[in-house]
Design a protein around this nucleic acid. Structure first.
Lengths: 216, 216
DNA sequence: ATTTACTTACTTTCTGGTAAGTAAGTTGAG
DNA sequence: CTCAACTTACTTACCAGAAAGTAAGTAAAT
């Protein structure tokens, strides 16, 4: 190992790792409640009983904290997922429905993603590339699942797979927004299931065009 | 008329009205590019060649500017819509597809709504009730259209109408977000059409459940 | 002995809002 | 019509309060 030990890993104390995660959890909370632009380091710091300078000691800058928080969340989710193996093929669609159900029990998490993903399209937002990559990856995953499903069902891979993949992610996101605004009116899990089912079925057998319903 | 003439309408000069609209357009631009929290009165003012105090002269506060901007946009859209009568019944779904097409030519407008609607779920956001009302109204509209469609097609009104209405608005929103992140990859109009069609057809004839696709 | 994990204190920059002033437009009385 | 009184549409100047980041110091752990 010629020159790899040069990379310092100063995070020796286990207490430090724990504190960092505390801060990251607080960041999820605050950025979810206030957005990135409007959330402050002082609020995050207060939640873990240190000063805002203490947070900067661990993460260097607000922007860096945001980025580390996003990858931290992703890693946590992937870790949970790896245990139960990454579901591909038609199981993925069931998994997405289960995800919607799980999400309906953790509004805080849903809110960070909803708020930050939309905020990420604003000028020079630090999370922009994160969300670009996220959606590219997720669309690829769903597209693969559709390929497997189509082959399984003996359907020659339709041209609608791309649209369907984007649409599934889109409904899930859009329903989360409406659910955050009207928790009482929107049944996140059941509605997500309905919509995903509708889209999956539309890929396998398209049904009539919208214009067919004109007049009578 | 005992005491109603007391209400002053100080906006006499036509030049003033024009300036106000200029400012509102600039606000759409800036709040779309930066979000409400991060956009500044100074930036908006600069776009119309006045100082930020000039903007405050017209609108009183930043919050009020946001609110007036939102209703201004709505009024403009409703005015455009009234000409071509409010489409109800199955025509509404075609109208929504046309809206997606129109939107794909005005990214700025799409971006304000995407950014602000998500931002509105944050703590004490001034646009919160605006978007709550907006979604309630829109869901009601779509639900009515579904009722008409179901009757027309001889389908006893299914329980899925509520879910379908929310889902249609949800896909449209979600696709807009993905389109703003990846304009090259997402075909806003075509994909919206696909998804809306999928959902409408699912209401009329549900098709198999997702769990049916398990194994082979 | 040195590094880590902070704190206190300070600096800078930014922002919305206010106050006061001014030039131009509007209005009403004669 | 005309001129004074008033109103409107701003500007400049200022303020108070955030907020992120920096510097220097300190106590504890390694």
């Amino acid at each position: 190992m010629p020159n790899q030990a040069k990379v310092k890993t100063p995070r020796t104390r286990p207490e430090t790792q724990r504190k960092r995660k505390e801060i990251l959890d607080a960041a999820i909370d605050i950025f979810g409640q206030k957005g990135y632009a409007n959330g402050t380091l002082a609020e995050i710091a207060e939640q873990v009983d240190i000063t805002h300078a203490g947070v900067l000691h661990h993460f260097g800058s607000k922007q860096n904290l945001l980025l580390e928080m996003l990858t931290y969340r992703d890693e946590t989710d992937v870790a949970d997922l790896d245990e139960h193996h990454i579901p591909n093929g038609p199981e993925l669609f069931l998994h997405l429905v289960r995800t919607a159900l799980v999400n309906s029990r953790r509004a805080g998490l849903v809110q960070v993603y909803t708020v930050l993903s939309a905020e990420s399209v604003t000028d020079d937002h630090p999370a922009r590339t994160f969300f670009e990559n996220r959606y590219s990856t997720l669309r690829g995953l769903v597209t693969d699942a559709f390929r497997v499903l189509c082959e399984q069902e003996g359907v020659t891979e339709p041209a609608t797979i791309g649209a369907a993949s984007a649409s599934i992610l889109a409904v899930m996101d859009g329903l989360q927004l409406q659910w955050l605004l009207h928790p009482k009116d929107i049944e996140l899990a059941a509605t997500s299931e309905f919509a995903i089912r509708a889209i999956v079925n539309a890929v396998l057998l398209p049904g009539p065009e919208l214009s067919q319903y004109r007049r009578g």
